[in-house]
């Protein structure tokens, strides 16, 4: 017995990965993202210095929040798998699903950040601590996903990726510290400066808050669906051969 809850799997395999709760969560997420669109594009004012370019912030900041949240969830779920008594494979699937979502939204963060940087700083990239740490973290989690794709049994995969997921947590402060120290000993950016801390008025701040809530709901929705998909993939791998053999036997009129 390797799967944690076969009853859940059988239910989800009949009905896809949705449940009543995830449907409500999905609807709420769509409403919140629509609300973010209205606030971010229509109601919130343009910035005095940056003009409409500041609206990128309403996607960029929630994306980076979601990515870091996803990586924290990956680390916690990895710890639950590794140190828990049952070495839960469900925790491993949550870690994997969360890392996949984190990588996607880290890519969104980097792309939106580069576009925003081009408009405000005049360049796509600055070697400051935040950007460099984010880029290295992005590459590290691509490595984590590569480890998840390695051959081996499910328990082998789960243990390997849990350890890599926890080592990535050790890496973050060290990479950030080194890059910060590196940049502090070099001249500051000369184009337009790298300070992103724009002063926000009330409506801008509220729009940002809406974005963070919307993206958090989106994360939960994606996490639930993706971890259920991973569970179904595991189940399919486990029962796939038996099912195929039974099907061939049935076609040949052979009773097992």
């Amino acid at each position: 017995m390797t799967l944690d809850s076969p009853s859940t799997v059988s239910t989800t395999s009949r009905r896809g990965t949705a449940t009543a709760a995830t449907r409500v969560l999905g609807a709420l997420t769509i409403v919140m993202i629509g609300w973010l669109g209205v606030f971010g594009l229509l109601l919130s004012p343009a910035d005095r210095d940056q003009g409409d370019a500041v609206r990128i912030m309403y996607v960029h900041v929630p994306s980076v929040w979601l990515a870091y949240l996803a990586f924290i969830v990956t680390a916690l779920a990895s710890a639950v798998h590794l140190f828990g008594k049952s070495h839960s494979l469900q925790a491993d699937r949550v870690a994997g699903a969360s890392a996949e979502i984190g990588v996607v939204f880290m890519a969104v963060t980097l792309v939106t950040g580069m576009l925003w940087g081009r408009i405000t700083w005049g360049v796509y990239w600055q070697w400051d601590a935040r950007l460099t740490t984010t880029a290295l973290l992005f590459i590290s989690y691509i490595g984590y996903l590569a480890v998840r794709g390695l051959e081996g049994s499910r328990s082998q995969r789960a243990r390997r990726s849990a350890i890599v997921g926890l080592l990535a947590v050790l890496e973050v402060p060290l990479v950030h510290w080194s890059v910060k120290l590196w940049r502090s000993l070099h001249q500051e950016a000369t184009v337009l400066g790298t300070d992103l801390d724009v002063s926000l008025d009330g409506l801008m701040l509220f729009s940002l808050f809406v974005g963070v809530v919307a993206f958090t709901l989106l994360f939960l929705w994606l996490l639930l669906h993706r971890s259920r998909v991973l569970m179904m993939i595991d189940l399919s791998a486990e029962t796939g051969l038996d099912a195929a053999l039974a099907q061939r036997r049935a076609e040949g009129g052979v009773t097992p």
């Binding site: 590290s140 490595g143 590569a146 080194s178 590196w182």
Partner: peptide, 25 residues
């Protein structure tokens, strides 16, 4: 970690080099 798996030659630099960046700096 990568020993004994297919594709370890390309996997190892992908795993090690980002983590080793503080050493390089």
């Amino acid at each position: 970690l990568a020993s004994g798996v297919r594709g370890r030659e390309s996997l190892l630099p992908l795993l090690v080099l980002p983590v080793a960046s503080p050493v390089l700096i």
